[in-house]
Amino acid sequence: MRRSKAETAETRRNIVKTAGIRFRQNGICETGLADLMESAGLTHGGFYRHFASKDQLISEASADAFAANVAEMEAAASTVKGRKALEAIADAYLSPEHRKDRAHGCPLAALGSEFARSEKSTRSVATEGILKMIAIVAERLKDPNTVRAKKSASVFVATMLGALTISRIVADPKVSSEILAATRAKLSSWE
């Protein structure tokens, strides 16, 4: 029985969404296609009807994950104006909930080292996502369209990423929470 184009597109979206979650949860290298397709409610053999390779899926799932992360940053920033928007971005990104939910969180914090070793198409997707994150922060800085704002926003994003990553690594929950809180406090007074 042939599926309609709409059903095929929906199945593909489901695979991409599931892959994004599984990659962030378990890592790209640790996520096998058979397990991924089973999680999506499909058979392993159906994979190649939708994708030419795992690398193609990695790129598409990464783009989808970055789009969700960027949308969350924009949503956090849209609730307030000016400096408070930066504080809202940092509060959302550096929250205990984000720390715990790697599967639905920032793909950089979950997969950064794997992105660095990925194919060029995936690194390009990651680069685009990073630049969008930087742009969201830069738009909320004083004189947003300047080189200074872009540089400052780059440091802001890198600081959030580093703090979230380190907070996930440390074994002591108290230290992990202190790292998030200290970074949120520092970023709330960002210039």
Rank of each mutant, 00 (worst) to 15 (best):
M1W: 11
M1G: 15
S4F: 04
K5L: 08
E10K: 06
T11L: 07
T11E: 04
R13L: 09
R13K: 11
A19C: 14
F23R: 02
R24A: 10
Q25K: 13
Q25L: 07
Q25I: 03
N26G: 10
N26I: 09
T31A: 09
L33Y: 13
L33D: 10
L33C: 12
E38C: 05
E38K: 09
E38N: 09
E38S: 10
A40T: 09
L42W: 03
H44W: 05
G45T: 14
G46Q: 15
G46S: 14
R49A: 13
R49H: 15
A52E: 14
Q56S: 12
S59K: 11
A61K: 08
A65G: 12
F66S: 11
F66L: 15
A67M: 13
A67E: 15
E72K: 06
E74C: 11
V80M: 10
V80P: 05
V80G: 02
K84V: 10
K84N: 13
K84P: 06
A85V: 06
A88L: 11
D91C: 13
D91F: 12
Y93L: 04
Y93F: 11
L94V: 05
H98Q: 06
R99L: 03
R99C: 02
K100W: 09
D101I: 00
A103Y: 01
A103M: 01
H104Y: 00
H104E: 00
P107K: 03
L108P: 00
L111T: 08
L111H: 04
L111P: 01
S113T: 12
F115E: 00
S118V: 00
E119M: 15
R123L: 08
V125P: 05
V125R: 09
T127E: 15
E128V: 15
L131S: 15
K132S: 14
V137G: 01
E139S: 13
E139I: 05
R140L: 04
L141W: 01
D143A: 11
N145M: 11
T146M: 07
T146D: 04
A149Q: 07
K150V: 14
A153I: 04
V155G: 02
F156Y: 04
A158W: 02
A158I: 08
M160D: 00
L164H: 01
I166F: 02
I166Y: 01
I166V: 07
S167D: 05
D172W: 08
P173F: 01
K174N: 12
K174D: 11
K174P: 02
K174Y: 10
S176Y: 06
T183W: 00
K186L: 12
S188Y: 07
S189V: 08
W190H: 03
E191F: 04
